[in-house]
Simulated scan of single mutants.
Amino acid sequence: MAHIVVIGGGPYGGTVANRLQKTGAKITLISRSEKALLLPAMIRLPFHKDPSRVSVELKDILNPNIELMIDQVVNVDESQVDLGAHDPVSFDRLVIATGAVWDDPIAPHKYQQNGIQEYAKEVAGLGEKANNIVLVGGGALGVELAGEYAYHFPKKSITLIHSEKKLLDASAIDKVRDSVESQLRGLKVKLILGKKAEIRGQSVFVDGEEVPCDYLIKTTGPKANPPVSSIKGLVNEKNEIIISSKFQAECNPKIYAIGDVTNYPKRGLVSRENWLSIITHNLNEDIKGTSNYRTVDWPKQGVKSKSTFAVSVGPEGGAGQYILPFGCAFSLPRFAVVKAKSSTLFYSKLNSMFI
Rank of each mutant, 00 (worst) to 15 (best):
G13L: 07
N18A: 07
L20E: 01
L29C: 06
I30L: 07
K35Y: 15
L38G: 00
P46N: 08
P46T: 07
K49W: 06
R53W: 04
V54H: 02
K59M: 12
P64D: 05
E67G: 00
M69Y: 12
S79H: 14
L83I: 07
G84T: 00
D92E: 12
L94E: 00
T98L: 11
D104I: 07
A107L: 12
Y111L: 14
G115F: 05
K121F: 13
E122P: 01
G125I: 06
L126G: 09
I133G: 02
I133W: 04
G137V: 04
G139T: 03
L141C: 05
G142S: 05
G142A: 05
F153N: 10
L160Y: 03
L167V: 08
L168E: 03
K175R: 13
E181I: 02
R185I: 10
L187A: 07
A197I: 07
A197N: 01
E198C: 06
G201D: 06
F205A: 06
F205P: 01
D214C: 02
T219C: 13
T219Q: 05
P222E: 03
V228F: 11
K232F: 12
E240L: 04
I242G: 02
S244V: 00
S245W: 04
A249F: 00
N252A: 11
K254Y: 10
Y256R: 01
G259E: 03
P265R: 04
V270A: 15
S277C: 09
T280M: 08
T280L: 07
H281Q: 10
N282W: 02
N284Q: 13
D286I: 04
G289H: 10
T290M: 10
T290N: 14
R294M: 13
R294A: 09
V296T: 10
W298K: 05
K300A: 12
V303Q: 11
K306P: 03
S307M: 13
F309H: 09
S312D: 09
V313E: 00
I323K: 15
F330Q: 06
V337G: 01
V338R: 03
K341R: 10
S342T: 06
F354G: 00
I355E: 15
